[in-house]
Design a protein around this nucleic acid. Structure first.
Lengths: 214, 214
DNA sequence: TAATACCAGTGTAATTTATACACTAAATGC
DNA sequence: GCATTTAGTGTATAAATTACACTGGTATTA
């Protein structure tokens, strides 16, 4: 069932960079491509936009199909459309960024991908297409725009310690933060509240558990 | 000469929101559409992306064709792609923002547009497609991200008074700024230098003219 | 030619925000 | 009970932001 147009049309895809914090390091979900082009290389999950489907909906669907992840907030990074970025045809891709708490990521390889897993952003493999460049932009955007509240709401599990939250903020920003200054700032933000629980984590004083206020 | 694909493809356009400051108010360049759909309505200049043309290049070309403006810096705002935003077919548009000094805008109506002119952003006409929504996002982005340096470099004529620069910053931010604080801040920015000239503007003390340092 | 209207140009004090920094508390392992 | 490890807490300094009022130079006009 062919589709014909008077003028040539590019294909349009969506790609989703899902970031998380794992072992105190910023990481991103990649899939291994099963097919040409770039078969065997790692790539950001994504795929073609349905003709009657909104961009965001397509992003959500593709992410789910390829990794099993049901994205929460999806923020658009922008469109990437250099004429030679895909050898099959002219493809313009609209990239979204999402954040996920590490404990919500149950990665399942989907039909288009032979594998899906996390990579630390400072230890990325060679990527398909122009996905290296796209990830650079995505990380820059992340560092520029994300604040403590977004980290707490989107990147943390339901209950966490203040040290966990600090580590996550540090992983995202790529900088160290002073513990006392961080906690002082948190107080002014009115963002978290104690759950009453504590960790029983090891040979040291237990930490109080917190949750994000609603 | 028809073009055929196995799967349906959306059309891809670029649109450019060119902002300037005129009479101390933030304004945007619009064209009046000559043809269906939305004939007679005002719209952001833009058009279809050539199949071998980068997005930014297409934006630059369309802006030039429709208004005569040779854009300086083009910053991508993002992609807008709701399925029903164009009655002709599925159209995904990639929107760019540009700033222009008012004295560099010599608007010429191009072939696709019966008219091109400036509108103050707080006095916009009814717009074609989803361009109202797009402009809202563009203005929000502008207010969020633009700083004194960008205003001075991109929005001011070659020589200007400090009051002119302050008025432009106020127009962009939508807020008033204290004169002495503004000038104090300018000193720390190391951004402008006096040209030696002065305005001979009226029944008051003349103002010194400045230019942006290179 | 003195008075007025108009915009240009200048500095200081107070407040708020960000930064630097070191010890005590509670648990476990030996 | 001593060593080790992470949790938890406050103060002093520096930096950035805000608020605020008068003098200077030109043109107009009474």
């Amino acid at each position: 069932m062919p589709y014909t147009y008077e003028h040539p049309h590019p294909a349009v895809t969506v790609d989703v960079a899902v970031f998380t914090v794992s072992d105190g390091r910023l990481a991103v979900v990649l899939i291994r491509r099963a097919e040409w082009p770039h078969a065997g290389k790692w790539a950001i999950p994504g795929g073609f936009v349905g003709i009657d489907e909104s961009l965001k909906r397509a992003a959500w669907r593709e992410l789910r199909e390829e990794t099993g992840i049901k994205a929460g907030v999806l923020e658009q990074l922008g469109a990437f459309g250099r004429p030679d970025r895909d050898p099959r045809e002219r493809v313009i891709t609209v990239v979204y960024i999402s954040l996920a708490a590490a404990d919500r990521l149950r990665l399942e390889a989907g039909s288009d991908a032979s594998d899906a897993r996390l990579f630390y952003i400072d230890d990325l493999p060679e990527l398909a297409f122009d996905h290296s460049r796209i990830l650079e932009h995505a990380i820059e955007r992340l560092r520029d725009r994300i604040d403590t509240e977004a980290v707490a709401r989107q990147l943390m599990p339901a209950r966490f310690t203040l040290t966990d939250l600090q580590r996550a903020c540090e992983a995202v920003s790529g900088d160290t933060i002073d513990k006392r200054n961080f906690r002082k700032k948190l107080k002014t933000l009115d963002l978290v509240e104690p759950t009453g629980g504590e960790t029983q984590s090891g040979a040291h004083r237990p930490a109080k558990l917190y949750r994000v206020k609603s």
